[in-house]
Design a protein around this nucleic acid. Structure first.
Length: 507
RNA sequence: CGGGGCGUAGCGCAGUCCGGUUAGCGCACUGGUUUUGGGAACCAGGAGUCGGAGGUUCAAAUCCUCUCGCCCCGACCA
């Protein structure tokens, strides 16, 4: 007898959001924490999502003229010291390699030996080490622009970690580009922000807001930092991608110089931009429900899971033959120029258990196929964007013909749902009192999900930013690119302002 | 790094305050029988030395000290 609740995940989002998040990761078998502090093991189902993110983003990078390369994991400490703000920003979270050997400590253990003459930093980001190469590669304006991307792991020794959202080691890509002019570098910065926004919306089905960071939230060493911000279902903002205009700061530090068209030597203009495995956390929290993760078809490891139903060997043979035929038909179809990724779950466990497992893992489409369906030449379909009980029987032919459209419809539905949520929880606030109420939970002991994105005026003074942050833990997520100029008064100090910015709590 | 909570089988927990037979329970796992289209039932099994180290004691999951890790809140951050 089924005696568990209506939901597969406990606690629900409403009951305890952080705990729900962890349970979804476990139930969907995405990742687990490892024996190393703050580091995660990404399991096959989770890693496969990352591979699909990589594949599609990489294509977009190539389409915009970038090529991949790979640079060292280690950065000599002296390289790091070249850009003062950069050092200050990352110093507190650097893993440092000091020795090169281990030797017997005389007690059956090992001790480090072979002290390095210069310590090596495990890269928290690669501006300085890549800059060292770039300085050798760039001599003339004819060498520019230089458009490089690297897929890599980085280490940031964060104090508090959360699977996918903030881990000590994480996977990401970092783009590093060098340009002849300021304008060109700025253009690149915006272009890559647009690529991220497009990727988030098209592939992750996640609406985002593009905008510029305030000075306090800027990347260490950057002139300008831009980000895409998404709203999670607890109404908290998640910075999901960043693009930085670095000016000449890093080219000066790394001596990236070139002879310009007038024959005069000058420092180049650089950018950097990145997204990380955090995007998987974003997908979980943007679309997941109380039954587990909900995967956008464009990045799911499996579009379709087929569950054979039979009770004797005779039926089994018939069912599996029917499924073989169905699979061969599906293999003819394409979804956005890719093969349909499918799994036939032949494991010898009960049907109901399999169905729930695939719901928790977020597979967009499930088919149950048994003797009854074969008789009607039809399939029994469940969709992850609908309730688990909402299953329909449709003819085999119709299903096969429409499968790509069904997947697109699911992709669209979950996007619309997330966009609706973002809209419903975004408001203009002009009154300070109202602003404070918006961001204050009614139940202090056990805070309910509250707040959202507040579009409010800001005078541009970082002191106001600081006051709000201290009072409410609310920060300016970005100055939206699309914000229109209008007259208003700063939500904090009341001085005149020309633009609304987005205030929210953030991860 | 500061405050709080917690480490007992793969997972979730009871037992700890008031030390004392072979350390329990649910789920999962293995084998069997009956089942099977919304998370099956029964029977029989396997698996832990109680996060780690040290101490107190005739006796430690339980008391003391140190230490490691996880979770939540805060500061820091993709």
């Amino acid at each position: 007898m089924a005696k568990k609740g209506k939901q597969a995940i406990s606690p629900t989002r409403e009951e305890n959001y952080p705990s729900w998040y962890q349970q979804v990761i476990r139930a969907a078998d995405l990742a687990e924490s490892s024996d190393i502090r703050g580091c995660m093991v990404i399991k096959p189902w989770g890693y496969s999502i990352w591979e699909n993110i990589q594949k599609n983003l990489d294509e977009m990078f190539k389409e915009t003229g970038h090529v991949n390369a790979y640079f060292p994991l280690f950065i000599p400490k002296s390289f790091f010291e070249k850009e003062a703000e950069h050092v200050e920003g990352f110093a507190k979270e650097c893993a440092v390699v000091t020795h090169s050997r281990l030797e017997d400590d005389g007690n059956g253990g090992l001790k480090p030996a072979g002290k390095l003459t210069e310590e090596l930093i495990v890269r928290p980001t690669s501006e300085t080490i890549i800059g060292a190469s770039f300085s050798k590669w760039v001599a003339s304006y004819r060498d520019l622009p230089l458009l490089i991307n690297q897929w890599a792991n980085v280490v940031r020794w964060e104090l508090r970690t959360r699977l996918f959202l903030r881990t000590t080691e994480f996977l990401w890509q970092e783009g590093h580009t060098v340009h002849e002019t300021r304008a060109e570098a700025e253009e690149e910065t915006y272009r890559m922000l647009d690529v991220y926004a497009e990727f988030a919306e098209k592939f992750l089905a996640m609406p985002v807001i593009k905008g510029e960071k305030t000075e306090s939230e800027r990347f260490p060493g950057a002139i300008q930092t831009f980000s895409i911000e998404a709203m999670m279902q607890d109404k908290i903002a998640l910075q999901s991608g960043t693009s930085h205009f670095l000016g000449q700061n890093f080219s000066i530090a790394s001596k990236i110089k070139f002879q310009n068209r007038e024959g005069v030597e000058e420092f180049a203009w650089t950018t950097s931009w990145g997204v990380s495995t955090r995007l998987i956390g974003a997908v979980i929290m943007a679309h997941g429900d109380d039954n587990g993760i909900v995967l956008p078809p464009r990045i799911t490891p499996a579009h379709l899971v087929i569950i054979p139903i039979y009770r004797n060997e005779e039926d089994q043979k018939k069912v599996l033959e029917y499924i073989d035929f169905l699979v061969s038909e599906i293999n003819q179809k394409r979804y956005h120029e890719e093969r349909i990724r499918l799994k036939v779950d032949k494991r010898d466990i009960s049907g109901g258990e399999k169905i729930w497992e695939w719901i928790k893992k977020g597979a967009p489409v499930r088919l149950e196929i048994g003797p009854r369906d074969i008789e009607k030449d039809s399939v029994f379909m469940g969709r992850r964007d609908l309730e688990p009980s909402e299953k329909t029987s449709i003819s085999r032919k119709e299903f096969v013909d429409n499968l790509p459209d069904i997947l697109d419809e699911i992709q669209k539905n979950i996007y619309d749902k997330a966009a609706g949520f973002l809209k419903a929880n975004t408001i203009n606030i002009d009154d300070r009192e109202e602003f404070y109420q918006f961001f204050t939970p009614k139940n202090k002991e056990n805070p309910e999900i509250h707040g959202g994105f507040a579009h409010s005026h800001w005078c541009g003074n970082s002191e106001c930013e600081e006051i709000i942050k201290n009072d409410l833990k609310v920060t300016i997520r970005c100055i939206p690119s699309e914000a229109k100029e209008e007259d208003g008064k700063c939500i904090c100090c009341g001085k005149t302002s020309r633009k609304r910015v987005i205030f929210a709590k953030s991860y």
